[in-house]
């Protein structure tokens, strides 16, 4: 199945099509690039620099919950929320719960998710909260599935790449796994999250920004990656999972 047949399309579809990606069906009515063809993949990776990968995860599930009843709703949905703002916690199924503000959280599905049955108890509880009989509902959904695009950036030099776009110090040892920075990325308001599940091994960053600016952000990241010291490349979801699963090579370069 190709991109223009699924009803839901990532905002990055034009760029991925230009790169010759093939889209696989994902979830109910979406599609996802799982991997690039072997030829395009090899051509892009430079043997000298440690790998730096950028992957579009926009089709994966995410949802925001806002309101005074957020805590109780999360508990009722068997989800654990972080205590402090700008932190995140891994759930049992591998999904992430990120606290954006006192009464607001963002939930990101697990990377390996199949796209169906994500956050089922949460959706059920939100539905029942919004039914007409419950006029005093205290909790509301935020449409992050559509308003935010989701990019993953993995590699030892991820923080060096982000240092060309972002004025927050995201380096190892300063920006802990699980930490969130709500800041400006290439002059765009964005969420920069360091994956909490990866304390050892190659660092993984989740970048979430306004969908309308997804193409602009993608172009900025690719331009920044094209510097010879970084030499990053684009990959599909399965490529990313495979890369994250391989044992870490500790060869680090400091291009400063």
């Amino acid at each position: 199945m190709t991109a223009f047949l699924s009803r839901r399309r990532s905002a990055l579809t034009p760029r991925l099509c230009d790169l010759g990606a093939t889209f696989a069906p994902f979830g109910e009515d979406s599609s996802l690039v799982e991997s690039f063809s072997a030829k395009t993949r090899e051509a892009r990776q430079s043997p000298s620099a440690p790998p730096l990968l950028l992957c579009d995860l926009s089709p994966l599930a995410r949802i925001g919950v806002k309101g005074q009843g957020t805590e109780s709703l999360l508990r009722a949905s068997a989800l654990v929320a972080p205590k402090a703002t700008n932190e995140s916690v891994v759930q049992k199924d591998g999904s992430l719960c990120v606290r954006l503000a006192e009464g607001e959280v963002l939930l990101l599905s697990a990377l390996a998710s199949k796209g169906v049955r994500d956050f089922v108890p949460l959706h059920k509880n939100l539905e029942s909260a919004s039914s007409a009989s419950n006029k005093r509902r205290q909790v509301f959904p935020v449409a992050y599935q559509d308003s935010l695009c989701w990019l993953a950036l993995a590699g030892d030099q991820a923080s060096d790449l982000l240092a060309t776009l972002c004025a927050v110090d995201l380096r190892d040892g300063i920006f802990a796994p699980g930490a969130l920075a709500q800041t400006s990325l290439a002059r765009l308001s964005a969420l920069v999250l360091r994956d909490p599940a990866r304390r050892k091994g190659v660092p993984l960053f989740h970048l979430l920004a306004d969908s309308a600016s997804a193409l602009y952000l993608w172009d900025c990241l690719l331009d920044a990656m094209s510097v010879p010291e970084l030499d990053g490349s684009v990959c599909g979801r399965q490529d990313l999972l495979r890369f994250l699963a391989t044992p870490p090579s500790r060869k680090r370069q400091r291009p400063l």
Partner: peptide, 10 residues
């Protein structure tokens, strides 16, 4: 108060 020290441009 919530996000810590940031550049004033934010």
């Amino acid at each position: 108060p919530v996000h810590g020290e940031r550049n004033i441009a934010e």
